[in-house]
Each structure stands twice: as structure tokens, then as C-alpha cells.
Amino acid sequence: MRPFDYIRADAPATATKEAGAGARYIAGGTNLLDLMKLEVMTPERLVDITRLDLRDVERTPEGGLKIGALVTNSDLAAHPDVRRDYPVLSRALLSGATGQLRNKATAGGNLLQRTRCYYFYDPAQPCNKRDPGSGCGAIGGFNRIHAILGASEHCIATHPSDMAVAMRALDAEIEVEGADGAGRRIPIADLHRLPSDTPQDETTLAPGDLITAVILPPPAKNTFQAYRKVRDRASYAFALVSVACVLRMDGDRIGGVALAFGGLAHKPWRDPEVEATLTGESPSDDLFDKAADTLLREAQGQGGNDFKIPLARRTLKAVLREATQTEAAA
């Protein structure tokens, strides 16, 4: 770990003031310190924001939920309002990491979790994300966990968060305080980037931006919500494929649906065309296949992760069957 200056902030404004170039905020630290020990990340200054007053979960005037950036994954998953109104989020949080890590990891930090790509994690290997211009070791390498959607010739990494996938399905907004002290809100759809030719830029945040809260819209009534995660161990493994589903039936037709996917791309993946395919239609296996066709129309395997294409299709179908209580076609 490279030496760094350690500074404790007592208010968001002092935090953003301290966070100049080469600085990083630290809250849970579960990903940042992991990467600092490997010197994948080498901040010169750590601004400890754990003493900021950002640990509350409150109702918004619109009837949604405002989640302080420092609310731990454990507290968020167990929060009565989240369990009742946003079960997809509780389930996603509970599927991630371990009891110990969830007690530390925060809502804000989890959104900014870095990829688990093996080549990113090993400074002796090329990685355009860690060392722009050095190449992508995963292309042509071992790429079992890598992206099948939205990747580029420069980077095929995936975003590892479960929480963010559920928040994407819930249309969360991210509240940010900038280095200039000005606050703003970013739809979660616009927070994470695809790798294109600058995979080192993972989000649209500017240097010094501090996530202060996540805003959930008012809960949708009468929805089926589920988070299904497929992985290599029964517990404590990152998603190969995950599906967050919020679905409302309107009589015997699908009234509305939000579907977000983990393990497939550089960001929590959501495709409006998939949802358009389903909305207003009568559920059937044929329809679900059409939705899967749409989702995977540009899917590209890299060899080691080719299986994710059929796996994503099957998982999506199973989730939709459950959500619509459709029996499998004989």
C-alpha cells in the first residue's frame, strides 16, 4: 500500500474541499483497501467520510425513500420500508458478499465498486482500466466472468454490484455534492458508463464529487419483485448472471415491467426494448423468448463466457415465468 495522507471530514463541504487530485473518499473501504493493498489503486490522500451525517433512511415528500450514502448494506437490506416496498433491493443486497462485508459496505461505495476482472486486479497484467493504453488482458485470456453486452475492444469487464442492479430496475437517482459545493441528482442510468475507448472512466462523476444519497421513487403498487442471482458457489460469489425484476400484471396482460441485469456488462444493464416487447402482452414462453432475443441481439461471447448467453436467456425466462405465474410450455 502506498503511503497516503489520512484526513477525517466532519461535513460534506469539508470533504469535497479536501478531496483534490489524487484523493479518494473512504467509507466502508471494503473495495478500496482491497485494491490499495495490491496497489491497483494508489491514492495519495484518503478522506475519511464515515463521520458525516449520511446514515439515515428517510421518506421523501413524494413518498419515495432517501437512503444516506453511508447506510450500510446490512442496514439497508433489513430496513422495514425496503423489505416491504422494495423487496428486490433487499434481496439483491442480501445476495451480495457476506454478513461481515455488508456490515461495512455502504450504499454510496457499492455504486462505485470496481470490477472483479482478474487482469484489473493484477498489476503485472495489461489492463486499460488500471493502466490506460496497456491493453486488455482478458480479451484472449481467461474471461469466464466477463461481459457479453456493451463491451469494447479495450475492455470487457463487468460491474460486480448486486445492489446497483436492483437500484437500476427501481429507477433510483443519485444525489451528488460537487467539489464546488453544489448539489445535483443523476439518474442511475447515467451514473455508470460503458467502457468504449476510456474504460478507466467508469462513471460520469467529476473528481471530488461526493455521493450523499440514493433516492428511490415511490414504490410501485402491486408488483412482483425478485432478484435472481446465478453464481459458481451457493453463496459468496459474484454473479455470473443476475436479474432484477419489477413486474405488474394488468389483468392477464403484463402491465409494466422493469428488468435489470448483472454480470452481463460494464454497468447494470437495462434495455427499454426488452421491456417494450413485454409490456401490454399476454405472458407466454414465446413472448419471453422474444424478450430474450431482444436482450441478447448484440450479445458477444469471448470464449470463456459464451455460456452466459444461454444462461441469461434461461434465467430471464424463469424469472418471467415466476413473475407472471406462467407454466412452462409442454
Binding site: 482478474y118 451457493a234 453463496s235 459468496y236
Partner: peptide, 15 residues
Amino acid sequence: VNRDLAEYHVPVNLD
């Protein structure tokens, strides 16, 4: 490639 206990999967309790 998978030189740690996150990616070398020894069975966990739930396995």
C-alpha cells in the same frame, strides 16, 4: 489468473 479466495472457489458453508 484466480489467485485469491474470492475467485478460487473453495466450498463455503452453504455449499
